[in-house]
Design a protein around this nucleic acid. Sequence first.
DNA 1: CTGTATCCTTAGGGATACTG
DNA 2: CAGTATCCCTAAGGATACAG
Lengths: 125, 125
Amino acid sequence: MSVEIWGDKWTLLIIRDLMFVGKKTYGDLLASEEGIATNILADRLKMLTENGIVEQTQTAGTRSGSAYKLTQKGIDLLPIMAEIYLWSDAHLDISDDLRRRIQSIKDDKAGFIADTARELSKGDG
Amino acid sequence: MSVEIWGDKWTLLIIRDLMFVGKKTYGDLLASEEGIATNILADRLKMLTENGIVEQTQTAGTRSGSAYKLTQKGIDLLPIMAEIYLWSDAHLDISDDLRRRIQSIKDDKAGFIADTARELSKGDG
DNA sequence: CTGTATCCTTAGGGATACTG
DNA sequence: CAGTATCCCTAAGGATACAG
């Protein structure tokens, strides 16, 4: 039951950041609000890459594949994340800001997922 | 982002067992395929209870509230679990048996969720 | 900036004995 | 059967120095 992904705090936060927060680089992810350690971040990115959920952008020529992005398999996690947010909205004490952003999921879940997925797929190869 | 729940392997498995496997008692849960330790199980059940996701059935008079069940808040996790299963079906190497059971979610997700929720709510007080 | 390597500490958790 | 209490040990992970 994909416990590797759902049984780890940091993995979840990385996916969130790549999916919704627009983070792309190692440095972006490192600067997460929660303060992940460098070795942990590297370890999780490796695991996610090995599992085909994340990949490094190869802009062929650009030195260092510093950018990460979700693969289609990773993008397919969107419905799960959306449901997690909806549940959080209903049952958790969250910030007004987050609640406002969740409103767009409530307004049109399918649309939100489709739009976000399209955005994440930009420039896929 | 409810990292308590989604960042812990055992918590996820307990919810799964209560939600889909029909387990109710401490002993049932203890006998999980994955082999949870007694102290860990007790700890997680306590955490889930404190978070209002699980409650002990009080059959008023029956000694020892040995049965656990999901609260409404816990039942509301159903859409998330359903999406996790759908994702697993699409992207993971799972058993034929599990795939067969997921088929019923694919056939009618809303119906599956409604039916399961109703089943879990039986005898709520 | 993107990682890798090491060190060191703590907490998670397996095993198991024990209690109501 | 339903938990609690201990013990012990490994592994997760924070801090940080180092490397490409």
